[in-house]
Amino acid sequence: MNNPALRDIWVYLSATPLFGLTITLVAYGLAYRFYLKTNSSPLANPVVTSVAMLIAVLLVSGISYNDYFAGGQFVHFLLGPATVALAVPLYQQFSRLRQLWLPVLISLICGVGIAAGSSVLLARLLGGSLEIQMSLAPKSATAPVAMGISEKIGGLPSLTAVLVVITGITGAILGTKLFEWIGVKDDTAKGIAMGVAAHGIGTARAFQVSNRMGAFSGLAMALSAFATALMVPWMVDWIQALL
């Protein structure tokens, strides 16, 4: 860093919580511009690229995660209000939701069952240990809920947190292409599938496609967290007893 003005800014920011906040906002801003430049390609998902940029900056600068999070927590705090604000687009879709409450309920229960059942069975089939199977079971729920379930059923909560993030990224990248391949064109169906399988990261991607897809994805994310907490502990017991 040869420019003295830039160096001064770096020294000042790195000593305050503003550093974490600034690099988070700058990384997301750059990632979003890159996403737009790629014609909104799901492969350039701004969540993925901004996380990669932040990891690179922390590794290169040697700043610890705790120091970064002193500023990053301001963005983290906004996660709560942003989640509550998902009710607004959902309210705008209320007439459609009233019409579709039964299909939504059926899809939700089936989706949560398939997400947990397929991950446990596939991991078992491929030789995964019981702890890995239990860590994978709640991977489609939002992270705090998934970690709680993982702990209760004998998984590793910190591993589950990582698997939850990777699941969300996978869903956000593959989702729209998959729906195209299987011929699903209804934004309501796409939103429900995205929210059930890929929680918040999938919901962020769904809002990039349309308001309707985002609203139903947000609804599915919230309800599937609730359904996962109810269904998965019982389901994994049942699968273990059966096999």
Binding site: C110, G111, I114, A115, S140, L178, V184, I192, A193, A197
Partner: peptide, 8 residues
């Protein structure tokens, strides 16, 4: 999960 839920 995504394919099955969307189709259902």
């Amino acid at each position: 999960t995504m394919v099955a839920t969307a189709l259902i």
